[in-house]
Amino acid sequence: MLMGRTIIKNLLHKYATRLHPYEQRILPDKFRGRFRFIIDKCIMCRNCAVKCPTKCITIDPETGLWEREVMACVYCGVCADVCPTGCIIMTNVYRPPITEPTKLTFMCTPRPKKKKPTEEAQTMNKKDVETAIKQQQAERTAPSLPVSEE
């Protein structure tokens, strides 16, 4: 009977739950939700692919292929942390459900030829990255960057 007071309180007070699809919750800014990839900012450095714990990102700098296996991703947000140009963003929007293994494929600009094109991105030093960003930005002067979402 000790629960009685709580129950009467519940009866008289507002609902603690909400009717979800009709009433949306405001998600905190830090929430790791929907994955956003801004193609034009990518410099094909392969940082995200190397640091990803599930290895769900595949990058081929030669062809400019950027691929992500949606079902393998665990949304830890490491790729967004390590991305030097900020082309990977975790938005605070709920992720839509998917029903079958899906691959998100983007075709980016292939990386400009370096001295050693086969070299791993791990060994790419900071200066290279910065120059690469500048190059990319110089190449692309479109006012609004096309944004792709899953």
Binding site: N10, L11, Y15, T17, L19
Partner: peptide, 10 residues
Amino acid sequence: KITARMQSRF
């Protein structure tokens, strides 16, 4: 409905 209300649910 009433049980849910007692548990603060819809």
